[in-house]
C-alpha cells in the first residue's frame, strides 16, 4: 500500500514560514510512522530532519503531531491512521529548529524548576531501603511513567498562547514527587506550582491526558495539585487527595 506523507520543511536560520513537501512511501501493516520517516531519509531525501532513538515508545524522542494528534511516531502504525494521507508536523507550541526538530531547552528548563529529585528529611537508613507501602507506590506509579516526550505540553492550548506556563509534563513531574511518601518537600513544590505560571493556568481542557502516549493522567494530576494547595492554604493539608487511575488496557 502506498501512502502520501506530508511534512513541513523549515530551517529557523533561513526560513520565515515552512514549505510543505509530500513523499510517497510504500507501507506494510507493520510499518510505523517512524519507519516511514526513516525510509524517506535513507531512500528518498536525506535532508529531512527528525529525532528518533529507541523505537519502542520509551525514550520520548519522536513526539510529533500526526494527523492532528500528538503521538509517538515509533509506536503509531500507518495503517492505524486509516488514511492514505499522513500529515506529520512538529509538536505545536514548541520553537522549531528544523523540519520536525523542535527546541527542547525551554521544556527541560521548566522540568528542572520542579526540583525533579527526591528532597527528604527522612534519614538515609543505615541498612536497606526506605520502606514504601504498595499503596504508596501505586500513588506515584502512573506519574512515574512519564517519558518527557512533550506530547502533553504541546497539546495544551494554554501552552500555545502562553509560553510561560509550566505545562502538564513539568506539573506531573512535581506531582510525582509531591505524592512520593519518601519526599518531604511537599510545601516547597506546592509553592513552586501554585503560581500564575503554574497550576492556576490549567483550565482542565484534558488534551494533555488524552494525547499522552503512556496513559499518564496529566490533567487529573494538576487538579490534585490544585486541591492539595487549596487544602494546605486552608490548614487542612493532612487530607489525602486521590487521583483514580483506571487500569490501562
Amino acid at each position: 500500500m502506498n501512502v502520501r506523507i506530508r511534512v513541513p520543511r523549515f530551517n529557523a536560520e533561513t526560513d520565515a514560514t515552512p514549505k510543505f513537501q509530500e513523499y510517497t512511501v510504500t507501507v506494510t501493516p507493520q510499518t510505523t510512522v517512524l519507519d516511514a520517516l526513516n525510509s524517506i531519509r535513507s531512500e528518498q531525501d536525506g535532508t529531512l530532519a527528525f529525532r528518533r532513538s529507541c523505537r519502542s515508545g520509551m525514550c520520548g524522542s519522536c513526539g510529533m503531531l500526526i494527523n492532528g494528534r500528538n503521538r509517538l511516531a515509533c509506536n503509531t502504525r500507518v495503517v492505524d491512521l486509516n488514511n492514505h494521507e499522513v500529515s506529520v508536523n512538529p509538536l505545536p507550541g514548541f520553537p522549531v529548529i528544523r523540519d520536525l526538530v523542535v527546541d527542547w531547552d525551554p521544556f527541560f528548563a521548566k522540568d528542572a524548576v520542579m526540583l525533579p529529585y527526591l528532597v527528604t528529611d527522612q534519614p538515609v537508613p543505615a541498612e536497606g531501603e526506605r520502606l514504601q507501602s504498595r499503596y504508596d507506590y501505586e500513588r506515584i506509579d502512573n506519574a512515574a511513567r512519564c517519558i518527557q516526550c512533550g506530547c502533553c505540553s504541546s497539546a495544551c492550548p494554554v501552552q500555545w498562547s502562553n509560553g510561560d506556563y509550566y505545562g502538564p509534563a513539568a506539573l506531573t513531574r512535581a506531582y510525582r514527587f509531591v505524592e512520593d511518601s519518601r519526599d518531604t518537600a511537599v510545601r516547597a513544590r506546592l509553592d513552586i506550582v501554585g503560581t500564575e505560571t503554574g497550576v492556576w493556568r490549567c483550565h482542565t481542557i484534558f488534551n494533555c491526558t488524552s494525547d499522552c502516549p503512556k496513559g499518564v493522567l496529566n490533567t487529573e494530576n494538576i487538579q490534585a495539585l490544585k486541591r492539595k494547595i487549596m487544602l494546605t492554604r486552608l490548614g487542612l493539608g493532612s487530607i489525602a487527595v486521590k487521583v483514580h487511575a483506571p487500569e490501562l488496557a
Binding site: A109, D191, T195, E196, T197, W200
Partner: peptide, 13 residues
C-alpha cells in the same frame, strides 16, 4: 537554564 524560567508571584489559590 531553569533559573531563567520566569516564576510568577505566588498567587491564584
Amino acid at each position: 537554564r531553569a533559573q531563567q524560567v520566569r516564576v510568577a508571584p505566588r498567587a491564584g489559590t
